[in-house]
Structures are given as C-alpha cells and as structure tokens.
Design a binder for these strands. Sequence first.
DNA 1: TCGGGTAGTTCATTCACTGAACTAGCCGTA
DNA 2: TACGGCTAGTTCAGTGAATGAACTACCCGA
Lengths: 167, 167
Amino acid sequence: MALPSTYADRNCSLARSLEIVGERWTLLIVRDAFFGIRRFGDFATQLGIPRAVLTTRLRFLVQEGVLDHTDGEYVLTAKGIGLWPVMRAMMAWGDEHYSPGGDKRTFRHEADGGRLDGASRCSVCGEVVPPADVTIEPGPGYDPDTANADPVSASLTTPHRLLEPLS
Amino acid sequence: MALPSTYADRNCSLARSLEIVGERWTLLIVRDAFFGIRRFGDFATQLGIPRAVLTTRLRFLVQEGVLDHTDGEYVLTAKGIGLWPVMRAMMAWGDEHYSPGGDKRTFRHEADGGRLDGASRCSVCGEVVPPADVTIEPGPGYDPDTANADPVSASLTTPHRLLEPLS
DNA sequence: TCGGGTAGTTCATTCACTGAACTAGCCGTA
DNA sequence: TACGGCTAGTTCAGTGAATGAACTACCCGA
C-alpha cells in the first residue's frame, strides 16, 4: 500500500499487514490462490487485472513470502495460508451486508460436511477448520446468470477443496 | 476501491467488502474509530492523512452505513462494529509475521481479564468477546520510543475500552 | 522454422493521492 | 459587533500509480 511509515503505524500490526495486502487487487489475488488458481494467465483472465499490475503484485507477494513461485506456478506459503481468517472474515461481512439472497459461497468441513461460520468454525464438530480441510461450493446467494463464462471461472464454481490446483 | 465491477466480482463477497473498506486508509480510519477516535481533526493528526482524502473516506463510510455522523462526531454503527473480526484477524497476522518482539497490542476480556486470540476468543472463559467488552493496552511488542507524542496518541496508548470516546 | 501458447514488458493516457494553503462557520470574549 | 481562535472542511498544482492495448521473449510440438 506504500503508506508512509509514520510513527503511529510502526506500532500497529494492522497498518503493517495493510502494507503487504492492502493494495488494490492484492487480496483478490490471494483469494484466487486459495481457490486453486496458480498460473499468471489464469489470475489475469479471472480478475480482469492489467497484466502489468499483476506482475508487480505477484512479485511483491513472492518477495514477502506470501506466495511461492516455482515451475511457473504461484502457490500460497504457510504465511499466505495464514491470511485465511482475514479473507473469511471479509467474506462473512460482505455476505451479511451486501448479499440479501444468502452467502455467495458455502464453505464446508470436508471431514464431516459441516458448514463453516465466519470464523471457520464447523457447525458439526465445532472445531476451527484449517483451509486445507475446507471445500468450497456456490452458496444460496450465488447468481449463475452473472457468472463469468470462461473455463477458469467454470472450474471455480465447481465444488472443490481449497488450495488444490484447478483441474 | 473502485474496482471495476466484473461479473466475477458480483459473485464474491470479498470483492464487495473490498469495494467498501479496501481503499487506502479506510481500514485505518475504522481502526481508529474502534480505538475511540471520533472527531475529524483527531483522525487527521493521528493518521497523518491528507485532509481531502479523509473527507472523502469519512463521507463514503457514512454513506455506506459504517459510520454515523452526528454532532460533529463519527461513530461506528452496528455494521461498522461488524468489521471487528476483519481488523482483529489482520492485526493477528501482522503481529505473527512482522512483530518479532510480540504483539503490538494486547486485547482483554474486560469481565475476566482473559487475553483474546486472533478470533477474539477469551483465554479465561472461552467465549468470543464482542468489541464493546474488550479493553486494549500496549502489548509486549509495542515500542514506546517510536510512539507518536501528540495528546491523541498518548491517549490511545493508555489502556481503555474499545469504542469508548477518548478522554 | 513455423505456429501457438504462456508470461511477461512497454507506453501513452487517465486517475487518485499528496501536501500545503486557503475558507467557512461556530464560540467565547470585550 | 468586532475580534481571535478552533474545528472542519475545500481548493489546487504536482506527483505517482493504475489502466488498457499492443508488443516482445521464450518454450514446445510438428
């Protein structure tokens, strides 16, 4: 975000986090990485982001240790996976206030099929489920009419496990 | 954030949330509102944000129902308070990866003094504590040497309850 | 060596942020 | 009713970043 480093900000971890993931597009890139996107071209078509910006953001995320770049694929590191609670909380807030038809996506604990709340707590077993054990599927508020038609988007709307590469 | 409204984004609550709180400075404004700041001038001095930008952001947050503007004070609405899990998750991530000396701030359940984790769960009673029942104080990673000297910052570093106006 | 796909880079334009200075309105005082 | 100070903005020129389209570099298989 390139916020100026003020004294106040040096003592705030929120400001520090925003330096890393607060820039335009960055959290959407991380979202897609959770959903299984790994290739430059797939990020580009899915997000509709200018390719120059995508290059900059991916490079920065790799430099900061959020993504790993090997064999042409961008994959979330443990540090990147640590952003899951942030993403989940933001999705829950958006669902609650901007999606009258219900959640856009449903997250489930793969082991028992329980739904996950905004804190990733499973409705069946009560545990907080790590993203690797979570499946994602379109929710009741998902609108197929406005969905994108490209193969990557289609693949994204198929129920699948988080972090697994798209088929 | 003024992201272009693509088809893909219409089906993502994360993107929708970012339209509201994804712009530069916005989450820091909301943070300060949680910490008790309510007046235009206090936001301005605390954040070091250009006043024109602050005007724009505050107006937008009021328009979106995140803040309430009455008697010259900007106060979080219920919708705004709903952003607490987002802020808490981001702070926890920043503390974990960018604050080797420990958390910058400690949050406690006022009722029993228990520490809160990244999901606002109390270490004593085990409940998820709403922000109104949370107190904030400098944590082990807080660096007084780089702290700001103005009265507002000083007031912020004094242990106090979230959402309560600064004395 | 040709074509196609992937992963970028380049560049002119547009847009948003920055920082400093200026203004408008309110309040207490004389 | 004039004055000064305080708060909450607005204005504006300069700068830097995002946009979108076109271009390049590289690899791979035929």
